[in-house]
Amino acid sequence: MRKYSYFPGCSMESTAKPYRLATEYVMGKLGIGLVEIEDWNCCGATSGHTLSEALGLALPARSLALAEKRNPELDILTGCASCYARLRLAMYKARTDERAKYIIEKTIDMPYAAAREVYNFLDVFSLPDVREGIAERVVRKLTGLKAACYYGCLNVRPAEVTGAPDRENPTSMDEIVALTGAEPVDWAFKAECCGAAHQNDAASASRALPHRILRDAQSNGAEAIVTACPMCNLNLEMRQDGYVNRTGMDRIPVFSLSELLAVAMGASAKRIALEAHYVPSAAVLARALRRKDA
């Protein structure tokens, strides 16, 4: 059985209830064990590193160091792109930059070897055997659901830190989504910044960012957007009022990859609290479930 030290992150605990429930459901079905890191703390996104380099590295490194101490054989997994970016950067810096490692260990007052990898859900779902497991556990097909896979910028960038094979046109999520019978659409904003980090402090600069993502998804025929990050998900949903007013387009449901997989694996809307979404998403999923293979 696969097992990971799990870093939930703050969004999972609050706004991303459907994401959390769906993740628990899917991981349970797949037999992937998540060992929550004991006494984990804020990853530092999105403001930590802008205030202090040491803080920006030490915050995520503390959780990583705790994880390695408690379960030295387990890699670390997180479901949030922001957390992933911060954790992964701390790991990368500790491995490649002696000065950074010194700062980290001095600040957190613990050794941090950076011996284990930091992964996101996309990495794990893309493993060949996990992918096989997903295909086996899909009990109902989301036939023909036109889904735009939105990776979030921090799941792929910067390339030297994430090691993502293609940071401009990633395809790993598209391949997973296709396992459920849904049809991933080809679009241009898969990894563009959604502006979530600056919606409050720099609204004028960042409000338009989710709009262009929503617009490109819809103009390429998407019925829904699938995300891999609770922050992206929240932002793409919450900015739709302005979007509808500004462009006259319709709303578009946004939900996480975990939710999509959970539904395909048989979870009811209630089981994963789909009703908690700001933009209703149950209908589009139900429609896909009813659709027969062409």
Partner: peptide
């Protein structure tokens, strides 16, 4: 190399 330019689409 340039996915951001559409990669030839």
């Amino acid at each position: 190399l340039y996915g951001e330019y559409g990669g030839g689409r």
